[in-house]
Design a binder for these strands. Structure first.
Lengths: 106, 106
DNA sequence: CTCCTATTTGGCAATATCGCCAAATCGCCA
DNA sequence: TGGCGATTTGGCGATATTGCCAAATAGGAG
């Protein structure tokens, strides 16, 4: 594997890793409906504000979401809706795994 | 966030996490072309066989790839080609990030 | 049966991630 | 200007991931 491929895959993995966490998936799915401020997301998630803020920072760093300060609140919105298409593929994988399990039991 | 949502997102995150590594992305992209045995993948990747075997095990555990023993070799193949669609979205994100960078410089 | 090759598994040290607390910013508004 | 609420950042212990080596396993060939 040459260096160029290595770098390309590193970049790709960094983006994917940004989504590889339940809380961050929740954030992406929630922002897919419409924008939310940090305080709203924090209330929905039920973790410390600093924790939520760091998750948002990771998603923003990956370029998946965007922030916009309005007054004293910071609103986040989904910048790359194409990731939702991926999520449906993941659901397909989960369903296929479950059906594979069933087949083994019978 | 209720328990049901939590479990659903945990399962989703586990699948995504399985792909959140450069080497595993390489494996998925390589198997997308055609199947390969562990020894071939190991040669291409240039890491220890045990390392490659563990990466393959993670992808298999996630239900993304499938294995098939033929003689003394184990051949792996891509089971869920829909993940490739996700990769193109990731490339879009990377491209958008790069263009955002450029805009800031000018 | 025994050797040999391909692959997997166990274990360990290095590194990265996670979530909370405390502290620092930052912009409003009195 | 001073205080306040919203958000971010620093730091720390706990936990998870990673990659290598060594050892175990599995199967075919002699």
């Amino acid at each position: 594997m040459d260096t160029k491929t290595q770098n390309r895959l590193d970049a790709k993995a960094r983006i994917i890793k940004a989504m590889a966490h339940p809380t961050r998936l929740f954030i992406v799915e929630t922002l897919a409906k419409h924008e939310h401020c940090v305080c709203e997301l924090t209330a929905m998630i039920g973790a410390d504000v600093s924790t939520v803020s760091k998750h948002l920072s990771i998603l923003r760093g990956a370029g998946i979401i965007d922030d916009e300060k309005r007054g004293s609140l910071v609103y986040y919105q989904l910048k790359m809706p194409c990731v939702l298409g991926f999520f449906s593929c993941v659901d397909t994988v989960i369903k296929a795994n479950a059906q594979g399990q069933l087949k083994c039991i019978r």
